[in-house]
């Protein structure tokens, strides 16, 4: 039987208040316990569990679970060292590691059917990327003073081209604030929409009769491939976010 009403594929991103706080004097709606809050706590407990329960009781030889932690540590370490380099990279390693782990875990949790995608929430993710951008800019200004603006003039530019190039560079620099977050959010958002639309279509097709059920197995394989692709995107987007954060930090720390 077909659904009599069509549910929007965007319903999966809807936030609901699970536990509200009201007060006649102050507005506590920002502290409401919502779906979003629930998933932040799930992410927190997943991270805690991954780090506390896999240590093999603190033995020198780690457990098999701990290999994943070591692999992530080595990967992010290599990436930050390669991207930022110099003497200062170590101070930013925990920051980049935190972003990677947070996006990695929240993306993978969102791949569980009927769950909720934290990183598809544009407002939060774009705010996060803007904060990173703002922090990087402040680091650059305090570290280099006015010399920081030499970042907008690439080396070896002919003098007549300088105003134009500065304009373009400035624009691209400001665009970073939005583009970093938008890249992640839109990837996750489009992936989840694609999955739910294709999955809904396939469900309707396969639930019609036995023949369509057997026939529907063929696009089912394609859907499975898309699910695998979405898992890959989840991981790759976390990696891309970290690598871009490191490269922005490198720009403001060493100015090209």
């Amino acid at each position: 039987m077909l659904n009599l009403f069509i549910t929007s594929p965007l319903d999966q991103f809807e936030i609901r208040v699970l536990m509200g706080f009201t007060s006649p004097l102050l507005d506590f709606s920002s502290l409401n316990f919502t779906t979003f809050s629930l998933y932040t706590i799930i992410v927190l407990f997943t991270v805690l569990g991954l780090n506390l329960l896999t240590t093999n009781n603190n033995k020198i030889i780690g457990s098999k679970w701990f290999v994943s932690q070591e692999a992530i540590y080595d990967t992010i370490l290599n990436m930050v060292k390669g991207q930022i380099g110099g003497k200062l990279w170590g101070y930013y390693f925990p920051l980049v590691y935190t972003f990677f782990f947070f996006i990695f875990v929240s993306n993978l949790i969102s791949m569980i059917p009927y769950s909720f995608a934290l990183s598809a929430h544009l407002i939060f993710i774009v705010s996060l990327s803007s904060v990173i951008w703002l922090g990087a800019t402040i680091i650059g200004l305090t570290k280099h003073g006015l010399v920081f603006f030499s970042l907008f003039v690439p080396g070896g530019t002919p003098l007549p081209l300088v105003p134009l190039l500065v304009l373009i560079e400035l624009l691209s620099y400001f665009a970073r604030a939005i583009s970093l977050g938008l890249r992640l959010s839109s990837n996750v958002l489009s992936g989840h929409l694609l999955l739910i639309i294709l999955g809904g279509l396939l469900f309707n097709l396969m639930s019609m009769s036995i023949i369509t059920f057997v026939f529907g197995l063929i696009p089912g394989v394609g859907l499975l491939a898309i699910v695998v692709l979405e898992f890959a995107i989840s991981v790759i987007q976390a990696y891309v976010w970290s690598i871009l954060t490191s490269s922005y930090l490198k720009d403001v720390l060493y100015l090209h």
């Binding site: 290999v67 692999a71 540590y73 990967t75 370490l77 060292k81 170590g90 390693f93």
Partner: peptide, 15 residues
Amino acid sequence: WDVPGYKEKFGDLTI
């Protein structure tokens, strides 16, 4: 955050 000599001894798990 990197231990000098660790990679040479125990290998690198970079993915």
